[in-house]
């Protein structure tokens, strides 16, 4: 097995032309899978390509390089101030040691239904910028993630950046993750919510649930029900019922499908605490 650390995109494109080449960002997922014998072949590390790293704000959009580490994200003042939901999600991902290596792009490309950054990215309407030697294309995160462990990436193509439109400053951003412990836990269920309140009336709401379906689930039914309604326990309870009908959870070693379904709805009830 060979490992390569190209320093430029041009070198990268050459390397990616060889068959059986895995792209590695932080390595915290890929190297675990390799150890388990789930993948082999050459490894091409992205860590030395400067264009793929860094956080930049431009015209109300935050652009985050795919190999920006999660620790870098946590240390970004803009992320902390304008995307508290993403900040919280990242803070609960893995551990500080994992976050020092793991990247935002890596978390997206792993495309796990339990990927901790994904619900926030869905709720925020993030976009993925895909790059290959000849093309650049932009996909909504929901299009980018094709299924559990699958993305829209074509051979020779990488995820270069993530674009996140910054929500208006007075929008409520809420994130909650349920795990079996407080660090190093794979999410059992999670909710990322962005909402705008007019008094106690919900004007605009986006709800994204993690770990309760093959991919992150936006619950349009619950969003529609809550829009223009007051943020009361009764309304939330009704919406929670809609969430429970919409989710498609599975049983695994961490939790049962029934638990996930119930909790997905319950997580919505917590929004009552934002009622003025």
């Amino acid at each position: 097995m060979s490992a390569y650390l190209p320093g430029t995109l041009t070198d990268l494109w050459d390397l990616l032309e060889e068959a059986d080449t895995a792209v590695m960002a932080g390595g915290t997922d890929l190297l675990v899978r390799r150890r388990a014998g789930k993948c082999a072949g050459r490894i091409c590390c992205l860590e030395r390509i400067p264009e793929l790293r860094g956080v930049q704000e431009e015209e109300g959009v935050l652009e985050i390089g795919a190999t920006t580490t999660l620790t870098d994200l946590l240390e970004s003042a803009t992320v902390a101030a304008r995307l508290p939901m993403l900040h919280q999600a990242v803070r609960q991902l893995g551990s500080p040691l994992v976050r020092n290596q793991a990247t935002l792009g890596g978390n997206m490309c792993t495309a796990s239904p339990a990927g901790d950054t994904l619900p926030a990215l869905y709720a925020l309407g993030a976009q993925a910028v895909l790059l290959s030697r000849r093309t650049e294309r932009v996909l909504d995160v929901a299009e980018f993630i094709a299924g559990p462990g699958r993305t829209a990436l074509e051979p020779g193509e990488i995820l270069a950046r993530v674009r996140i439109p910054l929500p208006e400053p007075n929008a409520v951003q809420h994130f909650e993750k349920v795990g079996r412990r407080r660090a190093l836990a794979i999410s059992v269920a999670s909710l990322a919510a962005v909402l705008r309140l007019d008094g106690d009336v919900v004007r605009d709401i986006r709800l994204a649930f993690g770990s309760v379906a093959p991919t992150v689930l936006r619950c349009a039914e619950a969003e529609a029900w809550l829009t223009d309604r007051t943020l009361t326990a009764d309304n939330l309870r009704h919406a929670a019922g809609l969430v429970r009908s919409a989710v498609l959870p599975i049983d695994d070693v961490r939790a049962t499908a029934d638990y996930r379904r119930q909790v997905a709805g319950n997580l919505l009830l917590r929004l009552e605490t934002y009622r003025p």
């Binding site: 551990s95 079996r180 412990r181 407080r182 660090a183 190093l184 836990a185």
Partner: peptide
């Protein structure tokens, strides 16, 4: 198999 971390 989860054992306690410093946060738990």
């Amino acid at each position: 198999y989860l054992i306690p971390t410093s946060l738990d």
